[in-house]
């Protein structure tokens, strides 16, 4: 087992008066894929968004508890949210490229974070990011055309390329394949098995089969609580909790 990369302890999240997460504690390991599953509204995305403080942008949202990355509390006052988000990238359900060229989509982050100093540096970052996202060969001849002109699956890989362009350590994926067809989904999954060699990946997915295929550990959320977290093998073959079993076998309701 790899070392703990992210450790969440006793996380409560409130949206105004409404509590969305209840005392969630979970460790996620370096250079592994951790899947978060559970029915809609169970809190898995809310939990994911605690890891890069995306919940900060929602005024009525408050987070209690502790999230640490490599042992450092990310909610500490000394932490700059911008640098946190540099090391914790995110990919969303719907591909959301900027309305700019493919090149600019990727160059934007390194430029604003001051990672690239010259045009040559930027060119190199754009190329390697696209290569790591398994997109380079498909777009190398049209880098200056709009990113929005790509197919859905390509756009999603462009968003992944954009996320990794700033050298993050962690990539959060919130249902990254739910808007994609099976072929584009397979490409993303194939890509994930490459990316995990370099990055720690946390994925929220509604596809049980996807969680079973891509992840090493899986956490099951229900009604804002983490019901069970275990190796993916165990969760999908012989889970310890009846609620987990009911959910993954399609008996919830």
């Amino acid at each position: 087992m790899n070392k703990i990369k992210i450790s969440a302890k006793n996380i409560d999240v409130f949206y105004g008066d409404k509590q969305a997460l209840f005392d969630v504690s979970m460790d996620m390991y370096e250079k592994e894929v951790t899947a978060l599953i559970g029915p809609s509204g169970c809190g898995k995305s809310t939990f994911l968004r605690c890891i890069n403080r995306m919940n900060d942008v929602i005024d009525i949202c408050s987070v209690k508890g502790n999230v640490s990355i490599d042992g450092h509390d990310i909610y500490d006052k000394s932490i700059r949210v911008e640098s946190l988000r540099e090391s914790v990238g995110m990919v969303f359900q719907k591909p959301n490229p900027f309305p700019k060229s493919i090149y600019e989509n990727i160059a934007y982050g390194p430029r604003i974070h001051g990672i690239a100093n010259s045009k040559t540096d930027l060119d190199e970052i754009v190329e390697t990011s696209l290569q790591k996202a398994a997109l380079f060969d498909e777009v190398k001849d049209r880098l200056h055309q709009p990113g929005t002109g790509l197919s859905g699956g390509q756009q999603q890989r462009l968003c992944i390329a954009r996320a990794i362009s700033v050298n993050p350590e962690i990539i959060l994926m919130d249902e990254p394949c739910s808007a994609l067809d099976p072929i584009a989904t397979a490409k993303i999954e194939d890509l994930m098995s490459e990316l995990k060699k370099e990055f720690t990946i946390i994925i929220v997915t509604h596809s049980m089969q996807q969680a079973a295929r891509v992840s090493k550990n899986t956490g099951f959320f229900h009604l804002g609580k983490l019901i069970e977290v275990d190796s993916t093998d165990t969760i999908f073959s012989n889970p310890g909790n009846q609620k987990t079993q009911d959910y993954i076998t399609g008996r919830f309701g």
Binding site: M208, F236, S237, Q245
Partner: peptide, 10 residues
């Protein structure tokens, strides 16, 4: 058709 899991798969 169903891709059974856990007890169903067994």
């Amino acid at each position: 058709m169903r891709q059974p899991l856990a007890n169903d798969l067994r």
